[in-house]
Design a protein around this nucleic acid. Structure first.
Lengths: 238, 238
DNA sequence: TCTGTTCCGGAGGAGTGCCTCCGGAAACGG
DNA sequence: CCGTTTCCGGAGGCACTCCTCCGGAACAGA
């Protein structure tokens, strides 16, 4: 599978990889990271390739398994940030504080990086590296939840799957509201945290998005779902 | 624009519409309603046409503005059910009970009809009928929220836009979990309602989805997002 | 510089979805 | 039963996305 196949006698040991190849590979990864961050993982591969200044074939040469592989390799770093956040939260002495800051942190990370939002809401069955990170993060989350429950401030019937629910809900809200209603996601997260707290204290919410912002977001959703009419992308020829 | 163009002398006043045309129109609408209910509005128009036993051209003849028009006409009835639910909730004497049952009811309606879930989370700018219903429903929701706040059981800083947020979050969760994790949506809704209540009482949640259910749902999401690998739809030829 | 290996890039096949054109069929009214 | 009007259905254009093939360019070492 590797480039340097063994068996050939050591005398003919040629150069390992050409420098332009490695440079292209890094360029693709960097561009993918940047574009995925602002637009999510639904971007066409050709967009990535063109933005990186390479042809589509080069992209496939470096990521033969196609889109899934590129997404995985471009987002491992982000996935690790997710794992790091969980471990950092575990280090926090106060279990409840650790839990709430963790949830706020990962949801803010989703807002900063739509690709991560997508990644956290889906499973890449063929990428062992990302899935290993996810498993470790899941384990950390379970610990985190137990610690928070031990303080008595997280409701007993909270389940690890509820965390996934919030990640999915937040990802969806972000995908729709994007920059049209930046207040939406923090508001959702704050609501969620107050729902899972045993303490009754009603803490103030972040400002709500305006009606215009929500309308704008919902119009865009219709457009991206193929139900556009007015200023949509393409219009009938003649 | 109308079929019966004036100007021709009244003697040649022919029949209005052929019966098979009207029959086809109703067939298309019925099929669209059924399929949208179980699969959401992302279905290809050709699927609708084939299931209705008509050609794609017939569909376009009856719905010249394409997908948006079909979606709108197929879902007006569902939109009206949404409006009805809001008005029924307003008739409920207890403002808080009216509010909570309304939220639970519309989220359950979303679960029963994925097309409605999609519709409530987007805006069809070109369809006056659906948008009119939406406006009326919005007005009713505002009243409903005010009534619930008046009882002191709905937090004062709750905004109408929060309702949209829940609709969007619920739609997204439903789209992903579908039948893989039917518990997910009620759980999310229950969490949300407890977040917006001033009363501290921790009421029990519906059962959480299992890890396997959530994993299954997330794998499917990856598949539908073009990040599939194993048993995906199409595979490379040779 | 020169040669052989490695790598690149665009053309293009395959699949999908929206929408239109046009020959032919079916319904209507007499 | 027949002419006219209306309607139907599939072929196919256009755009998009994933992925592969192959001629030619760029690199590394002598």
């Amino acid at each position: 599978m590797e480039a340097r196949t063994v068996g050939a006698d050591a005398a003919t040991r040629t150069r390992r990889t050409r420098v332009d190849a490695e440079r292209n590979r890094q360029r693709i990864l960097r561009v993918a990271r940047d574009l995925y961050a602002t637009a999510g993982v639904d971007l066409p591969l050709e967009t990535i390739a063109r933005s990186a200044g390479v042809g589509i074939a080069t992209l496939y040469r470096h990521f033969p398994r196609g889109k899934e592989q590129l997404v995985a390799e471009a987002l491992v770093e982000q996935a690790s940030r997710y794992l790091d956040a969980a471990r950092r939260a575990l280090a926090e002495p106060d279990g409840w504080v650790g839990f709430t800051t963790f949830v706020e942190e990962i949801c803010a990370m989703q807002a900063d990086h739509l690709g991560l939002a997508d990644l956290l809401a889906m499973v890449l069955p063929a990428d062992e590296q990302v899935e290993a990170i996810r498993r470790q993060a899941n384990d950390a989350c379970v610990e985190l939840i137990d610690k928070a429950k031990a303080t008595g401030e997280l409701r007993e019937d909270f389940a690890g799957e509820d965390l996934l629910l919030v990640l999915m809900a937040n990802a969806a809200v972000l995908q729709v509201t994007r920059d049209a209603a930046p207040n939406a996601s923090p508001r959702l997260v704050s609501l969620f945290l107050q729902a899972v707290a045993t303490r009754a204290a009603i803490t103030p919410l972040p400002a709500a998005p305006s009606s215009e912002q929500m309308r704008e977001a919902m119009v865009r959703l219709a457009g991206s779902r193929g139900c556009a009419a007015g200023g949509g992308p393409v219009r009938a020829p003649g």
